[in-house]
């Protein structure tokens, strides 16, 4: 009985250490995920707002969204800033991650559709991403969909633990 307890205690102690380490690394991964998405959205919003007329023009050139170019040209950068703020403000982080997932999935589906179903593909976007081809942009966005998904499940894991 005593032996088994000791054995039991020995087997629990190392596990709890691993679990603590695991929690710490999960927290770090979550922070990295949120940081990357926040950085992307802030950067994307600033580059859109800095050259707003070009951004609005490029939206208008897209066959899919030409009719909605004006409202979208305001909604997209504002939405990106709001999502970035949600990711920074921890109580709203999960909503922010879902918003990011939706936005990145939307952008990914949009690029895929443009490449495969559109009769005209306009210039991609401003800033550093301007140097990426549409195909590279597609993979870049898929990467951020995965990051957002990872962020959601780690965040849920923490909420569950709490």
């Amino acid at each position: 009985m005593n032996r088994s307890t000791v054995v039991g205690q020995e087997s629990i102690r190392p596990k709890s250490k691993i679990s603590l380490r695991s929690l710490t690394s999960k927290a770090a991964i979550l922070e990295v995920c949120c940081f990357l998405i926040t950085l992307l959205f802030i950067y994307a919003a600033i580059s859109k707002l800095r050259d707003f007329s070009t951004f609005q023009l490029q939206l208008g050139q897209s066959p899919f969204i030409t009719d909605y170019a004006v409202p979208l040209s305001y909604m997209v950068p504002i939405g990106e800033i709001l999502l970035a703020l949600m990711l920074i403000y921890k109580p709203l982080r999960l909503i922010g991650l879902y918003g990011s997932l939706f936005t990145m999935a939307l952008f990914t589906a949009y690029i895929y559709s443009m490449l495969n179903f559109s009769y005209y593909v306009p210039c991609s976007c401003g800033g550093i991403l301007n140097s990426l081809s549409w195909e590279a942009h597609l993979w870049f966005n898929i990467g951020f969909v995965v990051i957002a998904l990872a962020g959601i499940f780690i965040q849920v894991h923490f909420k569950n633990k709490a």
Binding site: F64, I65, L106, A109, Y110, S113
Partner: peptide, 8 residues
């Protein structure tokens, strides 16, 4: 998200 793009 995919549905919105498919609609457009």
């Amino acid at each position: 998200a995919v549905g919105v793009v498919a609609f457009l």
